[in-house]
């Protein structure tokens, strides 16, 4: 049993993937809680598609792709935050902005001087993380954790009582922007290493799971980090033993954690109701 867990991480390529998962687990467990609580999971899922025109534009202008991706993400995040001021719900706003950016990306990509395969950058691979990816994930983890710690009371106040946040001296619009920029940064760093699919699963899965069993936000965040780290590393170990696609196994492990918690909660409710009766 111990060997089943430890064996995979004797392999350098698996160990690296695990380190990246732990770093991004810490980052996305905490940030993911605010994404789930603010109801912007749709933005988290779709934002990465907004990178495409940025990537193509950067390739055409000859500037670093990372920079182009960053510009694309920030444009997308800010546009989504602004469109939300209309009577449209966040998911509709996200949908409109991302559709426009995707269309623009496809048209830009038709330019004869655009290189092929830029789209494949969005399918980053967990087992191909570079030293730069690890360093970026660690640095971003520190920045995001620090900001979430400092902003915690403000986030709590605004999240709980958005309608009256202004009366309590906090601007919800400004906070939306901060959250959107943090999400854009996390997406930028994580998509290159993990790909869009794994990023959204890491951001939303553990937080949604922790929400099922948490009464307060701070413990929810700690629990989400723990779930993100344990479930994703377990998924990687399963990929090693069962010879199945690595990133997909991590996603399925995160989804399984949610399902098991949901089922466990249901059983606990039934048992409690029985013992009370």
């Amino acid at each position: 049993m111990i060997g089943w867990i430890t064996d995979p991480f004797g392999e350098p390529i698996v160990l690296r993937g695990a380190v990246e998962l732990v770093l991004l687990g810490v980052l996305s467990g905490g940030l993911g809680c605010w994404i789930v609580l603010s109801g912007v999971s749709s933005t988290a899922e779709s934002l990465s598609h907004g990178m495409l025109p940025g990537l193509v534009g950067a390739a055409l202008l000859g500037i670093p792709l990372l920079l182009g991706g960053a510009v694309g993400l920030v444009v997308a995040a800010v546009a989504i935050a602004l469109v939300q001021r209309s009577p449209l719900t966040p998911d509709v706003a996200t949908s409109v902005v991302i559709t426009g950016l995707l269309g623009a990306g496809v048209l830009l990509g038709l330019s004869p001087s655009a290189p092929a395969g830029l789209g494949s950058l969005l399918f980053g691979d967990l087992l191909g993380v570079s030293d730069l990816d690890l360093a970026l994930a660690a640095a971003l983890g520190v920045v995001v954790t620090l900001l979430l710690f400092l902003l915690h009371p403000t986030l709590l106040l605004t999240g709980f009582d958005r309608l009256n946040a202004t009366a309590l001296g906090r601007s919800p619009a400004r906070l939306d922007l901060v959250l959107a920029v943090l999400l854009a940064l996390a997406t930028l760093v994580a998509v290159q290493a993990l790909g869009t699919l794994l990023v959204v699963a890491m951001l939303v899965g553990p937080a949604a799971t922790a929400r099922l069993v948490s009464r307060r936000v701070a413990p929810m965040m700690l629990l989400a980090v723990a779930i993100a780290v344990v479930a994703s590393v377990a998924g990687l170990a399963a990929s090693y033993h069962a010879n199945l696609a690595a990133g997909a196994c991590v996603v399925l492990a995160l989804a399984a954690a949610f399902c098991m918690t949901l089922a466990g909660r249901g059983i606990a409710h039934v048992v409690l109701a029985r013992s009370a009766a």
């Binding site: 109801g39 998911d91 937080a207 949604a208 099922l212 989804a255």
Partner: peptide, 12 residues
């Protein structure tokens, strides 16, 4: 958990 989180998770 909110509908969006569930949708994102099922999609993933």
């Amino acid at each position: 958990t909110g509908p969006d989180s569930i949708i994102a998770l099922v999609l993933a």
